Simulated scan of single mutants.
Amino acid sequence: MSRTTSPFPERMELSSEGLVLRDWTEADLPSMPELFDHPDIAYWTPVVSPFDEAAARARLDRARQLRAEGTTVLLAITTDGGAPLGEVMLRRAPEGTEIGYAIGPAHRGQGLAARAVRVMAAYAFEQLDTEQVILELEAENAPSVAVATKAGFRLLDIPLITGEEKGRPYALQTWALDRPRPSGGAMATDTDS
């Protein structure tokens, strides 16, 4: 029986941009409902609602399973490695490397989402050799559009991703951030100018 090797380490902690993105732990279970049990998160994300202690346990177990399978990593967003303020996700799929996030209502307006997205994108570029990361979001979700813009993503001119979640139709735009090109050295030039 062959076993798949996960591209993600068993334990993760990423520190940059004034943030520490770290693994969720059992100690975080009591604080997860206060972060995720909110109408905005229920409306804009696939996170279950209502989000109670049982949902927190299920999310932690699912996060560990997805990491072991090598498809997805979910990390708590913190400023110091302590109390979680939200979550950032990196998912590898055949259609691309996607980032997602949710910030607890009490912690919004601090630039946490854009910073966490940039840290996770840097990890994907540097450690997973990803060429492009994407965000999928609804045009009507103005705070997420602002995060995408602030994090340096550009809206792709591709068809919307449509579907239904929790009985509500959605149409997702795809925003992308390309792997930074090294500066210096030989550069391609346009000889037709």
Rank of each mutant, 00 (worst) to 15 (best):
M1V: 15
S2R: 07
R3V: 14
T4C: 02
T4H: 11
T5S: 11
P9Q: 14
R11C: 15
R11N: 13
R11S: 09
M12P: 15
E13T: 15
S15L: 05
S16H: 11
E17I: 15
L19M: 10
L19T: 08
L19A: 07
R22Y: 10
D23K: 15
D23I: 13
D28R: 09
L29N: 10
L29P: 12
P30K: 12
P30Q: 13
M32G: 01
F36L: 15
D37T: 06
P39L: 05
A42Q: 04
Y43T: 09
P46H: 11
V48P: 03
P50C: 02
P50D: 08
E53V: 11
A54E: 14
A56N: 01
R57Q: 01
L60W: 01
R62Y: 09
Q65D: 07
E69V: 00
T72G: 00
T72I: 01
V73C: 04
L75E: 10
G81D: 01
G81W: 02
L85V: 14
V88A: 03
M89G: 05
R91P: 03
R92N: 03
R92K: 04
R92W: 00
E98H: 00
I99T: 00
A102M: 05
I103H: 11
G104M: 08
A106Y: 03
R108W: 12
R108K: 06
G109H: 07
R115Y: 02
A116S: 12
A116P: 07
V117F: 13
R118K: 11
A121T: 05
A121I: 09
A124P: 05
A124C: 14
A124G: 02
Q127W: 04
L128E: 11
D129G: 14
T130I: 12
E131M: 06
I134L: 08
L137A: 01
N141W: 09
N141Y: 09
P143I: 00
S144W: 05
S144D: 01
A146M: 03
A148H: 02
A151I: 00
L156Q: 14
D157A: 03
D157P: 08
I158W: 04
I158Y: 08
I158F: 13
P159E: 04
T162M: 07
E165G: 06
K166S: 10
R168M: 03
P169G: 06
Y170H: 04
A171I: 12
L172F: 10
T174D: 04
W175L: 04
P180H: 07
G185Q: 06
A188C: 07
T189F: 15
S193P: 09
